[in-house]
Amino acid sequence: MNILEVKNLVSQLNTEDGVLHIINDVSFAVKEDECFGIIGESGCGKTMTSMSILGYSDRIGLKAVSGEILFKGEDVLKFSKKRLREYNGKEAAIILQDPMQALDPLFTIKDQMIETIRRHQKVSKKEAEKIMIETAESLSVAKEKLNCYPHQLSGGMLQRIVGAMVLSCRPKLIIADEPTTALDVTIQLQYLKLLKRLQKEYHTALIFISHDIKVISMMCDRIAVMYAGEIVETGTRDDLFYHPKHPYTQALFKATNIDGNIRERYETIDGAPPNLKEEIAGCPFAERCQYATDACISGKPEVVKINDEHTVKCRRIADE
């Protein structure tokens, strides 16, 4: 069963300099209980997509031109303010990159957690405290830490607390937007392991957004590769890792140096992502792609289905 379906979403951001084409025809579906990964470089629209899913698009000035985002069959883009308040936190929630920004420095962790729980569930203070301690325990946050202020705790601990806050409302869908980027490598692993375990335990769907292939590959069952506001390739973890089809996916994997060995020179992708101010007529990667033909620059590539899960948006694959 799909808990979330994004269908042909096109979103634009109106700025002083004109319209930015942030999301261009994005479609994907997330199943219940699954961990879905979105990978891409900065500026490719990962975060904007997650904001749209949460129904925040109006607040950040993002205008959905066409398409729909179906959460259990309901279109998030058409939610009323009241429905949106119910939806955020209770049904879909987000873990942000920097836990320091997600927490209020003036209140203790306990105050903030109880506030969150009582905002979404009709429970007394005592019951809320019980829920808080329960979820904090499952994230191995010690009870004493709950009386601290955010500045007294380390980044890894804070990120776990934010996780506990999100999970305390038992949402059906959690978006984790680069949750480990601000953490040290040694802490990162512990956190990912914890997140994965809880996702299984609480039966929530998780959309994991990151620019780090290693992290994504550890966490996710299915992965979408995003480039310049388009999803260029989707597939299971194994599809993408062992048989990447899109030139961008291939280049990204080579540039990451996945085996960790040290070379004389780094592999790079020459050039820069396209300017989103203009609507791109063809494939967004055409300019940097070694296989690009005139047809790639002038017309949009079709989505090619390689197997049930694996799809790729590339003219070269379609021609084969």
């Binding site: 380390s154 890894g156 601990m157 490598v185 040694t186 990162q188 692993l189 512990q190 990912l192 392991k193 994965k196 290693k214 590959s217 550890m218 966490m219 996945i258 960790g260």
Partner: peptide
């Protein structure tokens, strides 16, 4: 620890560790 945590590819490979700085 630094090197191995960077090269883990599977979460089940990751060793459980405790303690903080």
């Amino acid at each position: 620890m630094l090197i191995s945590s960077d090269s883990v590819r599977n979460l089940s490979e990751a060793e459980e560790e405790s303690g903080e700085i």
